[in-house]
Design a protein around this nucleic acid. Structure first.
Lengths: 253, 253
DNA sequence: TAACATGGTGTAATTGATACACAATTGTAA
DNA sequence: TTACAATTGTGTATCAATTACACCATGTTA
């Protein structure tokens, strides 16, 4: 919990280096042990959780800002980032239950202004992430997609929109390289798709379809140790994967 | 051309009522006589053309702002508007050749700040639009998609991104209601699709596919007067059209 | 009134999606 | 050791969608 002095210093600094009225919120998706995860934070003075976010430096491209913010929360560079929507309702940035709100006079409080927030979603490899709280949070951690806490502000809408966008993108973009470990089995990849889409897929048809995209290399080794037939390992064919990213997977018209 | 006094008054007013650092740019698509059109403006002191745009009032939702801006340029309400991208490079808002830039000291010049611009694209019925210049332009008019002028700033990128988005959306959303007149023939609708996609489609397959969506009503009348067999007229089935808008046309997974 | 350009409708061939069947492999329990 | 259960690998029959055409109808023009 920050003292009034610390807060005053923070706000004074913030209003000098950050652009007013513009913020960034990120929905960071990870995948681990068959579960889809979202990176979230909990402030030290409220029950509600929120998404990793931050502001844009005066001379910084917004893409760079999003990367910088996520580097601070996850420890990793070169994250797969996708801008997906701007949230610009005048009411969205009201801090209804925040005790910080009243600690400083309005004009000294950087937070106490209207923010237009640019939403990014990120796909990251779960095991590489070191969740790190920010100055206003005591907890930064992964939350299961099917066991989400209460959201602060409009962060539920932001999360929902990100998930909808991700589902849509699944139809014309390859997804998985940033979410799966280097080597993985077909059932593991299928589980990722099923989790994102929240529905069961036919094992055999999934395999045929995903192989038809030509973005996978089949390896000779199998994943031993499981209590059944050992499945083959695959890796992404980066060249074809990138090509599919730009050209799209399947056309409509 | 504005005088220094007029300009000073304009900027003073602007910085009071508008949010700093946030702007809106719109790509307005129309369709007339088999040609795709974009609404553009030309400033009175430069050769380059630009897209209709504006700013967000202090307490105004961004969606409302986009509608207000387009109402001023086109005269029509209730425009089909779609947010498609945010352009946030620090360099993007430099007015390289604008003579207004040096007419006022930096701190009095509302334009002389970094703007994060929210891109909207709009689909409108050509015949309902009354192109209206803004305070800084002498011309506001439709330009053919295949005969575009030189763009100011990053407006070429904005236009390009809008067109790419529109093409993508064609795959999972019905498009046409806002671009076509109330009644139209199948060849006319096909021409719209061909123009957006910039490729020829098979006449017979197009008809089957678009009819299969169930978003059209076939009328009994035909379009007489043309020099050949008179084609039937169609209208959109609004109920099914709206349903398709929310549910999407075809699924991938 | 024949030629021609265009629109309306149909159909065969190909491709893609879906729903299964069956054999192979591996750890576990009898 | 062996039968079993669970899971993976591969194949195939069926249905739906897409593609590529053929043929006739209609209205204008020469």
């Amino acid at each position: 919990m920050l003292t009034k002095q610390e807060l005053e210093k923070y706000w004074a600094e913030a209003s000098k280096i950050y652009l007013n009225h513009v913020s960034i919120d990120c929905v960071v998706f990870g995948f681990h042990e068959g579960q889809m995860k979202v990176l979230m934070l909990k402030s030290n003075n409220e029950e509600a959780w929120y998404l990793p976010g931050g502001f844009v430096l005066n001379e910084e491209p917004i893409e760079t800002a999003a990367n910088r913010i996520l580097k601070e929360r996850t420890g990793i560079d070169e994250i797969f980032l996708q801008q997906f929507h701007v949230f610009g309702d005048p009411d969205r940035s009201k801090f209804h239950n925040d005790i910080y709100r009243d600690m400083l006079p309005k004009e000294k409080n950087f937070f106490n202004q209207r923010f237009i927030s640019i939403g990014y979603y990120a796909l990251v490899d779960f095991v590489n992430v070191t969740p790190t709280p920010d100055a206003f949070s005591e907890i930064c951690t992964w939350r299961d997609l099917d066991d989400l806490p209460q959201f602060q502000l409009d962060h539920e809408l932001i999360f929902r929109t990100a998930l909808d966008t991700l589902r849509l993108q699944l139809n014309y973009q390859p997804i998985g390289y940033n979410l799966m470990p280097k080597e993985f089995t077909m059932p593991e990849l299928q589980k990722l798709y099923e989790t994102i889409l929240d529905k069961k897929l036919d094992r055999r048809n999934f395999q045929r379809r995903i192989l038809a995209f030509g973005i996978l290399n089949k390896l000779q080794e199998t994943r031993k140790g499981g209590a059944h037939k050992a499945p083959y390992l695959y890796e992404f064919n980066l060249e074809n994967y990138r090509a599919a990213l730009t050209e799209g997977l399947q056309g409509g018209w």
